[in-house]
């Protein structure tokens, strides 16, 4: 069976959930071969094997952390040369897309970004995308070279499918031309203890209606009662009430959880672009004309400072 390269997104060997989704999707078109760059490949390989990686190509070089993106392209290209895969899958993060794009130029292939589903087709993998702020669903494929496809988080439920996951060292030479952009310093994000926004099954977001950083704990309390991630509209982020990493929308994160709760958010097109594919949508807004109500499965017209705390209490009571 044809091999499919899967680029592993990990933090110090801890494999992030979107990679498990990629392995699951990769199995629909071939045998997943994972590419792990950086330290702790052995640790990662256990998880990668559990989700179907027949092989883990591992390379570690200081350049991966010292220079932006390009050294990783060199490594992925080395893996591509070693395997001659039927397709290359990467997570749809800023970096995943950039690595995929540069590889596409090098190997003369097309690239599709932000796929939300993937299946085998007569003429190669068919990618489903959600475009124009999720108002259209398209099906596309790559017509030249080896398909390179980046997939959005939460596009598939990871399914375990134990495979060998044998670790093989990948020889990588980082070209001098790949050392152009120096990473001078790096400040890791502090963990909030809450689920990752893009991976969470439930997201609770607050907007301008939250009216101040000091009120965001109202949103956080509801999120915590549901085990949810916290999101924010750009209006709330621009006002400095919540960090940009939590922004949902066109220029923030795109989320597709089982449940999305929007409190004090009007539902502008750019916000919709990042949440419209959520399975169930709930909104709390005091303006019954707010466009967000066009999207909801359940909406409450009311003051979020009344409704959200009451909901939080009710959730806690019911959960016991």
């Amino acid at each position: 069976m044809a091999e499919v390269l899967v680029y592993v997104d990990h933090v110090d060997g801890a494999v992030r959930k979107p990679t498990l989704e990629l392995l699951t999707l990769a199995r629909r078109i071939g045998e997943p071969v994972a590419v792990h760059l950086g330290a702790h490949a052995d640790e990662a390989a256990k998880v990668l094997a559990e989700y179907g990686a027949v092989k883990v190509l591992a390379a570690d070089a200081p350049e991966f952390a010292e220079y932006l993106v390009a050294p990783k392209v060199d490594a992925l290209q080395a893996a591509y040369d070693a395997v001659s895969p039927a397709a290359v899958l990467l997570p749809s993060s800023a970096e995943g897309k950039e690595i995929g794009a540069r590889l596409a130029v090098r190997i003369g292939s097309g690239i599709i970004t932000d796929a939300v589903d993937l299946e085998a087709g007569a003429e190669g993998p068919v990618a489903t995308q959600s475009v124009f702020a999720a108002s259209y669903t398209t099906k596309s494929r790559i017509t030249k070279g080896t398909p390179i496809i980046t997939v959005k988080p939460n596009s598939a439920a990871p399914e375990a499918a134990p495979a060998a996951g044998t670790v093989e060292q990948l020889a990588v030479t980082v070209a001098d031309s790949s050392k152009g952009t120096k990473i001078v310093s790096r400040t890791p994000r502090e963990s909030t203890g809450r689920p990752e926004l893009t991976e969470a099954a439930i997201v609770v977001s607050g907007g301008r209606g939250v009216n101040g950083a000091e009120n965001f704990p109202v949103i956080e309390a509801l999120a915590d009662s549901l085990g949810a991630a916290v999101g924010a509209s750009r209006a709330a982020v621009d006002a400095g009430w919540y960090p940009h990493t939590n922004q949902v929308g066109q220029t923030g994160k795109s989320v597709s959880p089982q449940l999305y709760i929007a409190a004090g958010i009007s539902g502008a097109i750019q916000h919709r672009a990042g949440m419209q594919t959520s399975k169930t949508i709930v909104a709390i807004n005091k303006d019954e004309e707010a466009p967000i109500f066009e999207l909801v499965d359940y909406g409450v017209v009311g003051d979020l400072f009344e409704v959200v705390p009451a909901l939080t209490d009710e959730v806690k009571t019911r959960k016991g």
Binding site: V126, T138, I142, K144
Partner: peptide, 10 residues
Amino acid sequence: WTKVDDATER
């Protein structure tokens, strides 16, 4: 390098 085969309004 890519081809859209289908576009359906959601």
